[in-house]
Amino acid sequence: MKLNLKIWRQNGPNDKGRMVDYKIDGVDSDMSFLEMLDMLNEQLIAKGEEPVAFDHDCREGICGMCSLYINGEAHGPDRLTTTCQLHMRKFKDGDTIYIEPWRANAFPVIKDLVVDRSALDRIQQAGGYISVNTSGRTVDANNIPIPKKDADDAFDAATCIGCGACVATCKNSSAMLFVSAKVAQFAKLPQGRVEAADRVQNMIAAMDAEGFGSCTNTGACEVECPKGISLTNIAILNKEFLLAQTK
């Protein structure tokens, strides 16, 4: 198929950036979206132009490295799908496709479609852990029985891949879904309860300091999240936050 691509090009953090039109032919419907961009880049290199920079790594939907705002949606139009798992069969011959980077002040553009998401790491560093040293002498794993439902809920929250689609899609550039996934995971587990109060307060403080917006419960994040992280987690975060105030 033939496609018209409108791609954001920005030479560096200080460049203003602009949309540039590209035409591409011979796209196979079995190709992934990123393979389509690979093909474009090969053509650009052959023509002596600079290839489009974009983040990607595992290409199987788990590392969270790929991003891209495609036709006005984070990770494109498909649900529960990262850009690397989006296939060209979702598009039609002759389509025009807009490709933009995640846009949020907390995610400055590095180049073209590549943004700096280190703010998310710093939020995790503020409390996204259980303070237990490596010893090999902790209690036996089966000494802490955990109801299956709680373990499953914790797992569901823990499947966040930290891609930042929630921030990119949120009209407020809020990172609440991301933060809540970690808070909720540990809130559901007895091991995590010990530091629950400090964790939620510190992580929210870090989130605010990094320049993310606040949550207005539009639910867009949940819909665009490639891993289906539920809005429930934000409610859990709020509850944990209230509980923490009483301590």
């Binding site: 259980i130 902790t138 794993a141 955990i146 299956k148 373990a151």
Partner: peptide, 25 residues
Amino acid sequence: EVSGNIIDQAVMQGVPFARDYGGLL
């Protein structure tokens, strides 16, 4: 020999392994 310690360590860190209805791994 150290394989068992890994599971203990990971569970303490909050790794949500699959569990049975009895709450055990």
